[in-house]
Amino acid sequence: MRLQAQGVQLAYDQRVIARDLTLTIPDGKVSVLIGPNGSGKSTALRALARLLPPQQGSVILDGKSIQETPTKEVARLLAILPQVLVTPESISVEDLVWFGRHPHRASLKVPSAADKEAVEWAMEVTSTAELRHQHVDQLSGGQRQRVWIALCLAQGTDLILLDEPTTYLDVAYQLEVLDLLHQLNQEQGKTVAMVLHDFNMAAEYADHVFVMRSGSLVTQGTPEDVFTCDIIRDVFGVESKVVPHPVSGKPMCIPLRAGLRTQLAVAAG
């Protein structure tokens, strides 16, 4: 396994978010970190991407401590798409995707054939090539997110981490983005690890799920393993009914309102 956190303690200044957190991102799979607000899932992802140095323990990438690996070298092995993205003013799609080549290019060097190829490929796979001359701020939410993913792909890494790539998107765009990530995993063999909010989306797309609560890992496994009524209640504080998805057969959690909860309790005797 290429990327793992070993007993890390994570904190912003004095505020400790996670203690003794250990997790291993499975290679070649789509894994999802899920948990309520403040459970430390984004913080954990930032540590895995070398954006936040652990106070204790270490994050290991390819057998080496990630903090002791130069940032440029890490950027050639692992791409991270943060949650908050700043679009530079009046920038074209193609120019934005080119940023993905930054870790591979020295300051004065002219772009190599490999650079051009990587950028073209990234735009091709994400279906953003025909948008190349358009301004990024003119695109739809789904298109824009695909462009950001193209930037990460242009980095040419096998590991891609994404922090809530579907937040603030309409449901059609959420599917557009998650379908793309699924396809990248299936066809290109990319390892995808992301933070998601919606457990049904997570169940539908994840091979492996990490469930977090107040800075620690509650459980992990396939969606079938982790999405049970008990765990949903424990972690999210919600009564729910878990049923198989009528089409995919994946677990589906349906939260229950107050009236239905009593009804369910009475029925259960």
């Binding site: 440029k72 791409a79 991270i80 798409l81 943060p82 993205l85 530079p88 940023f99």
Partner: peptide, 22 residues
């Protein structure tokens, strides 16, 4: 010579660091 680094800083701290910029 450093102009591209300035461009990268414009993407926000996290993405800039993710792209290998100290």
């Amino acid at each position: 010579v450093w102009s591209r680094r300035l461009d990268v800083l414009g993407l926000g701290d996290d993405l800039a660091a993710g792209l290998g910029e100290p």
